[in-house]
Simulated scan of single mutants.
Amino acid sequence: MNIKILSRNSHLYSTQRLIEAAKKRGHHVEVMDPLKCDLVIEKRKPSIFYKGKVITDTDAVIPRIGASVTFYGTAVVRQFEMMGVFTTTESQALVRSRDKLRSLQVLSRARLGLPKTVFTNYSKDVGEVIKHVGGAPLIIKLLEGTQGLGVVLAETKNAAESVIEAFNGLQARVIVQEFIKEAGGADIRALIVDGHVVGAMKRQGKEGEFRSNLHRGGTASVIELTDDEENAAIKAAKSMGLGVAGVDMLQSSRGPLILEVNSSPGLEGIEAATGKDIAKSIIRYIERNV
């Protein structure tokens, strides 16, 4: 098969692993920078030009679209779909997953456990917002934040009011969430491929850090999910329409709580923690569908 990986950096670990896994299974693979694709839209003959050459004979694409290029990257994925090419992440699912508020609404509709969350249109009644999530401590997240950036733990009511008012003053949209103390600064990342958990790890924030992101200095270890956690992760990916997804969860006294569903999950941390060949699972997913 001819497989295209949509990635801005061919040297990234995840991109390299996907190239390696595809070649091992006898496929031809090429990395394309989605921002260098020109889309030609016409009746019955949508096409893509890359570096001046028309793209033909593509069987599948693996989108590795960064958050900063979601708009154009999604347009490229959509164009491949119009050309009848299989994609491991559909364009609509990609758009849905990048909108944190919409994602939470979709997950809520699927009756999945979530931390209590409040979103307002720059409400001046900050005290009421804090009250809705059960008071301080609480978490404040920028809607556009990634990899733990734009996430604040407000430990007191005064601190929460100050931070929310500051973001409101900057017209930066935020969501306010309850703080799950029993999670102890840790979360779970489950990697879903084609409706199955192919790997899971527990990420623990460094001492004094409530964010567990590996990019923020957190550590990862392999974990065996409970039935509830596995079912929640699979259901979350399915509700978002994602064939490949990283589902982040908190362990709480009321069961697993979904934090986020990532449409371009990194492979380095989870492959290192679990020792599993996640890239191979993604290539096999393509083989089953093309």
Rank of each mutant, 00 (worst) to 15 (best):
Glu90Val: 11
Gly205Phe: 01
Ser97Ile: 00
Pro63Ala: 10
Ser239Asp: 05
Glu90Thr: 09
Lys276Ser: 05
Asp38Trp: 13
Tyr50Pro: 04
Gln147Arg: 07
Val129Tyr: 03
Arg211Lys: 09
Ser281Val: 07
Pro265Glu: 15
Gln171Gly: 01
Leu107Lys: 02
Glu287Leu: 11
Ile3Thr: 07
Ser47Arg: 14
Ile258His: 04
Gly185Ala: 13
Val290Tyr: 14
Ser91Gly: 08
Lys141Ser: 02
Gly113His: 00
Lys116Cys: 01
Ile164Ala: 11
Ala272Asp: 10
Ala232Gly: 02
Met32Gln: 09
Thr87Phe: 04
Asn121Cys: 03
Glu224Arg: 08
Asn2Gly: 10
Val244Gln: 01
Arg288Pro: 06
Gly266His: 04
Leu104Ile: 09
Ala190Lys: 05
Asp227Glu: 09
Glu229Cys: 00
Arg288Cys: 10
Arg78Asp: 05
Asp248Leu: 03
Phe179Gly: 08
Ser103Ile: 03
Leu138Ala: 14
Phe179Asp: 07
Asn158Val: 08
Val129Arg: 00
Val77Trp: 01
Ala159Asp: 08
Lys276Gly: 02
Lys43Glu: 14
Arg254Met: 03
Ala110Ile: 02
Ile175Leu: 15
Glu155Met: 09
Gly169Met: 15
Gly199Val: 10
Ile258Met: 07
Asn168Phe: 11
Arg78Gly: 02
Glu90Met: 13
Asn168Thr: 10
Leu259Arg: 04
Glu209Arg: 08
Gly113Arg: 00
Ala233Gly: 05
Ala272His: 12
Leu170Pro: 01
Ser68Pro: 08
Leu114Tyr: 03
Thr58Ile: 15
Ile130Trp: 05
Ala237Phe: 04
Met32Glu: 07
Asn158Met: 10
